[in-house]
Design a protein around this nucleic acid. Structure first.
Lengths: 185, 185
DNA sequence: CGCATTTCGATACAGCCGTTGCGTTACCCA
DNA sequence: TGGGTAACGCAACGGCTGTATCGAAATGCG
């Protein structure tokens, strides 16, 4: 999979290399999509989120980690290290697999949910300190942040650099900033 | 395609119903993915965006139209009208197709770009009126809005109701509101 | 009308995913 | 140690996408 990407990744070759009958593989993973999500679950490294009290910094660190992780999965199966095509790679296949099989969808959503639950606590704490607007759920705020990243990755294909992440966080937190620092800093 | 969804949509049956040789079809659309994006380009209806001067209302109308359009595409190929499964349906296949073939990716990005360029002008005009924070590009603002919708559709599978759209717009515009109405209304 | 070029059709085929049927091996436990 | 259950292996197959080959039809043009 990491060698040739999703297309060049054939079940027949997997069973040949594993010296295993195709029947056995299909007993464990009932489709190629199931196998894919199991692979990604292995590849995915843990993302931890700090909770230092500086919500701007915490969010920036977290989103940067997510962005680099996505960029890494974007390049899975491409040989050229600097391959600059605007493709979502394996993430797009993951999304499609989740849409095809309900149980795969549950698994994929569970994967993302574990990662995405992390910054909710810092967000809630920041709101308690008055660093976030009231009346807006942390979930919506998080949807905007993560959504912008996935939107660029999957839909527009626009690059996701460190400056973009910073601009994103600034825009979301601008309410709180103008509230606590009316001079706009 | 609209009858049975992406899976039950077989090239062999298409050419049979069209009374056309498979060779001919493949001369026009060099893969099933190419055919898919051509179909979606036909299905996709035009979304127009108002520019009344009330940016909050304009954005809400636009995003609601986008959300209902996505929800319609989400149900393509499912018989039950009230089919409430949390699947991204044809949109996910579109994203995967765009990731597989570079030219399909260009076409899909072009489709989305045409729709997404629409609200940029009202956003820019609103900023000129001081109804948006300075220093933040309209593109980032739009990424947050559209991104949240696609994120819910493709990743979390969470529902996208009218109240959610409203909450989204309110959060994004809260900066401007507090700036022009410091009492918080 | 005659001819060349382009387009289309039909069939067969390769590669892949996923399934079926059945025989064989490994494992567990009395 | 023996027997029964569970897991595995093997080969073949069906359905699908995409390709190749070659023949037939249509179209444009002098």
């Amino acid at each position: 999979m990491t060698e040739r990407g999703y297309d060049g990744f054939a079940i027949d070759e997997v069973v040949a290399r594993a010296s295993v009958a195709k029947t056995t593989l299909y007993r464990r993973w009932p489709s190629k999509d199931h196998l894919l999500v199991a692979l990604v679950a292995r590849i995915q490294d843990e993302v931890e989120v700090a909770d230092t009290g500086d919500i701007r910094r915490d969010l920036t660190v977290y989103l940067t980690a997510v962005a680099t992780g996505l960029d890494r999965m974007r390049r899975v199966g491409r040989d050229g290290a600097g391959e600059a095509d605007r493709s979502a790679g394996v993430v797009a296949e993951l999304v499609a697999a989740a849409a095809r099989h309900p149980d795969v969808g549950d698994a994929v959503r569970g994967m993302f949910a574990r990662r995405n639950a992390l910054p909710l606590r810092p967000l809630d704490r920041a709101r308690e300190r008055g660093a976030l607007p009231t009346g807006i759920s942390s979930e919506v705020v998080f949807d905007q942040l993560a959504g912008a990243l996935y939107y660029r990755l999957l839909i527009t294909g626009a690059p996701i650099g460190a400056d973009y992440v910073q601009e994103l966080v600034d825009q979301v937190l601008s309410t709180a900033t103008t509230a606590s620092h009316p001079d706009g800093t």
